[in-house]
Amino acid sequence: MKEQDMQITLSTAKKVKPQADQLEFGKQFTDHMFIMDYTQGQGWHDPRIVPYQPLTLEPSAMIFHYGQSVFEGLKAYASPEDEVILFRPEKNFQRLNSSNGRLCIPDVDVDFALKALKTLISVDKEWIPQEEGTSLYIRPFIIATEPYLGVSSSHNYQFIIIMSPVGSYYKEGIHPVKIAVESAFTRAVNGGTGEAKTGGNYASSLKAQEVSEKMGYAQVLWLDGVEKKYIEEVGSMNVFFKINGEIITPALNGSILPGITRDSIIELLKHWNLPVTERRISMEEVYEAYKSGLLEEAFGTGTAAVISPIGEFLWNGEEMIVQNGETGELSKKLYDTLTDIQRGKIEDELNWTMKVEEKVTQ
C-alpha cells in the first residue's frame, strides 16, 4: 500500500479548540481521524483520513462480545522551534503488531502506519498545544468488526487513529503518589495477555483500582499471579526501584507489558553508566531494603506521566515511606531529561525522536 492511496476528506465544521488550562486527558479530540479496513483475502485496504465521527458497527460485531482489540498510546510535541516531534513512534507500531499476534489480529505495515500518522498530524497540526508540559496524545487501535457470534478470530477489522490535546500530567510539578500493594486481585499471568496492550487487561484492573482509591491510594502495585510474591507493574505503568545505588526493574516475563518508556529509561541509565538491572524482585526484598534504609527511590514509568515517583507503599498493613515522601534526585533527573528530549529542548544523543515535516501553526 502506498501513501498516495490514502484519501483525505477535510472537515467542514471545525471544532473550537480548548485553552491550554482547560485540557483534560482524553476528553477533547481533534477534527480528523484515520481509518483503514481489513478484509480476509484482501488484506488492509481503503486507508483514509476523515472528519472525527462516531463509528457504525452492527450489534453483533465481534469486538462487543469477545474483546478482540489492541491499542497504543504515544504523543506528538511542539519543539521550541515550532517543529512537530514524535518520540520513538516506530516502537509503538512494532508493539502494536506484537499485541496483534497475541490477539490473532493481522499485522499492520509499520512504515505505512507511520506515514498515515504523520499525515494525520499534518492535517490537524494546529491542535498541538505549545504550552509547557502539553502535548498531542495519539491513540492508534484495532477492533474486530465482523458481525458474528461464533467464538473465533474475526475476518474483518478496522485500524483507527484518533488524537487528543492534553495538558501537563503534573499541573503543580512532579510529585510522589501513594501505592497499595495488591494481594487479592491479579492483573495477568504468564501465558495470558499481560504482555499485549489489549483492553481486557485494563478492564480487569479496575476493581483493584477502585478499592485502593477508597483507601486513599492513587494506584496498586501488582504482584505475580501465581505466588503473589514478585513485583510486576504499578497501576498501568512499569516500575523501578533504586536500592543501595542499583536501579532494578522487574524482568519481562510474559505477563509484563514491555513499556517503551521503560525501555527508554533503561537505555538512558546505561548511557549515564548507572547500574540498572532487569530481574525478578519480590515485595519482601523491597521491604527488607526499606527496613535497612537502602530503599532510596521508587517510580513508575509510562507515556502519560513519563515518570511517576512513589512516596509510599502500603503492604501487609504497614506504611513504607520512600524518600521522605518526596521526589528523588534520580526520578527528577530522568523526568527532566526525557521530557526535554521529547520536546526537542536538548540534544537527542540516542536518536529517539522523529520530526514531522510540518511547522506548528496556531
Rank of each mutant, 00 (worst) to 15 (best):
K2C: 06
C104S: 12
G225C: 07
D46F: 01
R187Y: 10
L295E: 01
H32D: 08
I142E: 01
I49C: 09
S164G: 09
T198M: 06
Q342G: 07
T134M: 03
P140V: 00
I105H: 03
Q130H: 06
I160A: 04
G199A: 15
K27Q: 11
L314W: 05
W352I: 00
V181F: 06
K207M: 13
V151I: 15
N238S: 10
S164K: 05
D31G: 11
T119V: 09
L257F: 12
M33P: 01
M1Q: 06
T277G: 03
L269E: 06
K91W: 01
M62A: 14
A144W: 02
P309H: 05
A218P: 02
V70C: 13
L257S: 04
D109E: 14
S122W: 02
L334P: 00
V276L: 08
P54W: 14
G200M: 07
P106V: 10
W272P: 09
V70I: 15
F141V: 05
I121W: 00
A184M: 10
I281K: 01
I247G: 00
E278P: 03
H271V: 04
V234C: 13
E329S: 14
Y38L: 03
A76Q: 04
A203S: 12
I49E: 02
N316V: 10
G325N: 10
I8K: 04
P140Y: 00
A188M: 07
R48Q: 15
D336P: 05
V50H: 01
I85A: 02
G254Y: 09
R262G: 03
L136A: 05
T361I: 14
G73V: 11
Y77D: 00
T277C: 06
N201L: 10
V276K: 02
L274T: 06
V239W: 01
Q158N: 08
R279G: 09
Y52T: 14
Q53A: 15
M320G: 02
Q219N: 12
Y335R: 02
C104D: 08
S168C: 14
T249V: 12
